[in-house]
Design a protein around this nucleic acid. Sequence first.
DNA 1: AGGCTTTTCTTGACTCGTTCAAGAAAAGGG
DNA 2: CCCTTTTCTTGAACGAGTCAAGAAAAGCCT
Lengths: 143, 143
Amino acid sequence: MAETPDLTEMLRGAALRVTRPRVAVLTAVHSHPHADTDAIIKVVRADLPEVSHQAVYDSLRTLTAAGLVRRIQPSGSVARYESRTGDNHHHVVCRACGAIADVDCAVGHAPCLTASDDHGFSLDEAEVVYWGLCPRCATHPPT
Amino acid sequence: MAETPDLTEMLRGAALRVTRPRVAVLTAVHSHPHADTDAIIKVVRADLPEVSHQAVYDSLRTLTAAGLVRRIQPSGSVARYESRTGDNHHHVVCRACGAIADVDCAVGHAPCLTASDDHGFSLDEAEVVYWGLCPRCATHPPT
DNA sequence: AGGCTTTTCTTGACTCGTTCAAGAAAAGGG
DNA sequence: CCCTTTTCTTGAACGAGTCAAGAAAAGCCT
C-alpha cells in the first residue's frame, strides 16, 4: 500500500478526479498484468466490496483514454489491461490457454511503424501479436 | 458465376462437403474482403434467401478451420473474414471508421516471426495491425 | 468549513455478436 | 437408391459490454 500515493499522483497528473474505485482499479491493473475485466472486478472487490461492475468498466475506459493503462484484445479474447504504456512493446499469446507475455519490440521502432504500402493511411501505431504455444501447453496439451 | 466450379473444387480439396450455403459463403468472402458476419449473411441471402444465420456462422467456422478463409478481428471490432490465406500479409485499420486494407509483410518474413524474447513459447505466426486514419477520415473527421 | 457544480458511481435493464441444442434435411459412399 | 453422417433450420440462450436515471462524492470557491 506504500504506492497508493504514486497512483493518486498519476490520476491527478492526468487531470482525473481521485476516487476510491479508480485507485483500486489502477492498483489492480498494476499488480495483475493482462487481467481481464472480470478478474479486475474481483481484485478490486477484495478491497472495496461494494464497487459496481459499471464503475470498473468506466474507470478502465477513463484510465485507458488517459493513457494510464493500455487495453489489449487478442482475437477471440475479451479485453485485457496492462500498466506498461508508451513503450511500444508487444505480446506473445498462447493459442491453447490464452496466456500472454510481454515482448519488447524486436526491431527497434522504425520498422514497426513502416508498412510496405500504407494505402494513404496516416499510421500512428503498429501492434504485433505473436501466436504460438506456451511451454506448458506445448508439453501437456490440454485435452 | 463462372468461378463456382473453382470454389467447389476448393471445398472438395479440403475434404468438405459441398453445400449451397458453403459455396455462397465462400463466394461472398471472395467478393467482399474484410466483411463482417452480418454483411456476409446479407450477401449470401441475395442468392440464397433462406439461409439461416447459423449456417453462415457454421460455414465460416468450418472454412476458417480448413484454411480456405482467414478470420481477423482487430481490437474493438467484430469478426471479419478474407480470402487471402497463407501469404502472411497484415492489415491497416482506420481508428475512426474501421476501414481495413491489406499490407504485405514489410520486412520479408523472418523478422515477423522473431520475437526479441519468446518466453519459451513455440511461435507459429506473427500478426501485425497498423493503426491510423484512412485518407477520408484524416481529412473529413467524422463528427 | 459549507455550499455548489460537475463528475462519477449504483442499480438495473438492455443490446448485440455469437454459441448451444434438438430435430429436419441434404450429401455422398456403398 | 438407400443409409449413415454431416450440415442446416429453428429458436433459445449466453456473456461481454453499454445505456440511462438518479444518488453520491470530488473538488472549486468563498
